[in-house]
Amino acid sequence: MKRPLKRSNAPIFWALFGAGGMLSALLGPILVFITGLAVPLGMLLPADTMSYANMQAFAQNIIGKGFIFAIIALFLWHAAHRIFHSLHDIGIHAGIVAKLICYGGAMVATLITAYELLAIGF
């Protein structure tokens, strides 16, 4: 009698890691530059680039919403997976508690992101 193999949930985490890794590799540097340096320091971009009116309109737009959600959620799933798999290297046991903290944290942040995007409205 052969029992069916227990299905692993690992591919889901790997896929999220890969998607977030690709997105952050393509857009991470320029986003950090725009939101963290160019706008606060007033270089290259207009002073009101990230004004309330602009950002609210962006977050209310369906494409803008999707972009914000993908960036925040996938960046965090990427980081959670990478940090989880590096724990052993720095001498921390990568057990169930560590897994819950890493992936659970990414999950909670994903839900908060979705909630706030819905709260901002359409």
Binding site: G28, T35, G36, I68, I71, F75, L76, A79, A80, R82
Partner: peptide, 8 residues
């Protein structure tokens, strides 16, 4: 990557 996502 995580810290930046949390700032956003």
């Amino acid at each position: 990557v995580a810290a930046y996502a949390l700032i956003l």
